[in-house]
């Protein structure tokens, strides 16, 4: 079976690999350390998984916004995303 039609590249494989690892990690955390949902600054109940989703979705928009407006290297946007992720997990 050939996967040539999927046109895999190294960077996209790493991208999906990281997401898969994060999902596995959060599944493990969910089993090992069960949690109760909490209410943060968005005034909505969130679990660890919700916060991960908000982080990933927000990071996509931060990266898109950075690419569209600044013209500066993209890894700076990743730095912003790291701060954003920390903020989401701390306060949302």
């Amino acid at each position: 079976m050939s996967f040539a039609w999927m046109a895999w590249t190294g960077p996209t494989a790493i991208f999906f690999g990281v997401i898969a690892c994060v999902l596995l990690l959060f599944t493990f955390l969910g089993i090992k350390y069960p949690e109760t949902p909490r209410r943060g600054i968005l005034m909505i109940e969130t679990t660890r998984g919700d916060r991960l989703f908000i982080t990933l979705l927000g990071s996509a928009f931060i990266n898109a916004g950075w690419l569209a407006t600044t013209g500066l290297p993209q890894y700076w946007a990743l730095g912003i995303c790291a701060f954003y992720a920390a903020a989401v997990f701390r306060w949302v």
Binding site: M6, A7, W8, P11, T12, F16
Partner: peptide, 14 residues
């Protein structure tokens, strides 16, 4: 799988 393929296409030209 289709979504992954779209992501792969989005960073390449063919």
């Amino acid at each position: 799988i289709p979504l992954m393929t779209v992501v792969n296409y989005s960073v390449q030209d063919t």
